[in-house]
């Protein structure tokens, strides 16, 4: 079914939103992901993904307070919904299950 599947990028952003609990918006998410993975995402791509996640119902957004550097402009803060949380969990479960059934590998390298 459309909408329940999470792409890798979406998963990352959704995780970021969940981690930042209550203080998640584009800038902080970019920083959080950078801190954890070293990947420098652009603001616009994160924003686009957040919009898409909201449309899928995995996050919901509200306008929050402002900061000085923002010139009085409010932030759009994102919060993970239970559906979003569920999906993240599912994703992890799938991984875990598949990890568990994976045979042990011993790699022989051919020189």
């Amino acid at each position: 079914m459309k909408g329940t599947h999470l792409g890798e990028f979406e998963e990352l952003v959704l995780l970021g939103t969940a981690v930042l609990d209550g203080n998640a918006y584009t800038v902080t998410i970019v920083e959080e992901i950078h801190a954890n993975t070293g990947r420098m995402l652009t603001l616009s791509s994160v924003h686009t993904v957040l919009t898409r996640l909201e449309k899928k119902g995995f996050v919901h957004s509200y306008m929050g307070g402002t900061l000085k550097e923002r010139g009085g402009r409010r932030r759009r803060l994102y919060k993970i919904t239970s559906a979003g949380y569920q999906t993240l969990n599912n994703t992890r479960d799938v991984r875990n299950r598949m990890w568990e059934v994976m045979p042990k590998f011993s790699f022989e390298f051919i020189s």
């Binding site: 918006y25 584009t26 800038v27 306008m63 550097e69 923002r70 010139g71 402009r73 409010r74 932030r75």
Partner: peptide, 14 residues
């Protein structure tokens, strides 16, 4: 507009 411009400004100063 509001959030995007705000984000961008914040990022710029950083």
């Amino acid at each position: 507009l509001e959030e995007v411009q705000g984000d961008l400004h914040e990022w710029y100063y950083k």
